[in-house]
């Protein structure tokens, strides 16, 4: 059933890792409790939806109107409530799939994040472009031992905020490791790999070149001293 559904939607298989040394590839997945967290959020939004629909119906019943109009309203109400009920099993299934089809790949040079079912998204970012890392967890996430790790690149205008649909990113300059139970570990791994990058001379002030140039200058001065 699920396999058929995925074929129907043409959801691509597991993503390939971006370039980097093969032994450095680490693939992280959402924590087991992430599914539970999604279910709670899903149940709450459904509850809000149904409550809203019933309040609307109650409101409409209080209004006196001609028979044809009330028939029309009844049809509309049935349509809305029926639609909400029909959508229940599908959106329930999507929660499970969304949890299962989620990959956070980290190599020695870059990271790739794949998420989503109906709308599939794959973000690729090199470490050279990373500006900051941030871990955040709401009260419910904290209780379930989950956290979101957010990796931002430069830029990002006003109004950009994390947390879009499907646990993707509202902020398109950030990649989100949503609902991981080892956020600290992933953070440390990325920080360590970033540090190696800076040491390799990709940082803003490559110390190697500066010290070599200083040595050259000192030698040139000494040479002039020897000549004059």
């Amino acid at each position: 059933m699920t396999a058929y559904f995925l074929r129907l939607l043409r959801v691509p298989p597991e993503p390939t890792a971006p370039d980097g040394s093969p032994e450095s590839i680490r693939i992280f997945r959402a924590g087991r409790n992430y599914y539970r967290w999604r279910l709670v959020v899903w149940a709450m939004t459904r509850l809000v939806g149904f409550t809203g629909a019933f309040i609307g119906i109650g409101f409409m019943m209080g209004i006196r109107m001609p028979a044809w109009a009330s028939a029309l309203v009844l049809a509309a109400e049935l349509f809305v409530v029926g639609g909400l009920i029909l959508a229940l099993p599908f959106s329930y299934m999507l929660q499970r799939l969304n949890y299962e089809l989620r990959w956070y790949i980290v190599t020695d040079r870059s990271l790739r994040i794949r998420s989503g079912i109906w709308s599939v998204e794959e973000i690729t970012m090199t470490f050279a472009n990373i500006q900051d890392l941030r871990i955040r967890a709401g009260p419910l996430q904290g209780w379930l031992g989950l956290a979101d790790l957010e990796v931002s690149s430069a830029g990002g205008g006003g109004g950009a905020r994390p947390g879009g649909k499907h646990g993707g990113t509202g902020n398109s300059h950030a990649a989100r490791f949503a609902g991981v139970d080892n956020a600290q570990e992933i953070r440390d791994l990325i920080v360590e790999r970033l540090r190696r990058y800076r040491d390799a001379g990709l940082g803003d002030a490559p110390a190697d070149i500066a010290s070599a140039a200083a040595e050259l200058l000192a030698e040139a001065r000494a040479l002039r001293g020897a000549v004059s």
């Binding site: 470490f127 472009n129 390799a200 001379g201």
Partner: peptide, 19 residues
């Protein structure tokens, strides 16, 4: 991706070479 900054080691090599 292959042309992005930091995707390959090329830059690192040239900077080390310069030093």
């Amino acid at each position: 991706y292959s042309r992005m900054r930091g995707a390959s080691e090329a830059k690192h090599d040239s900077e080390a070479g310069l030093a």
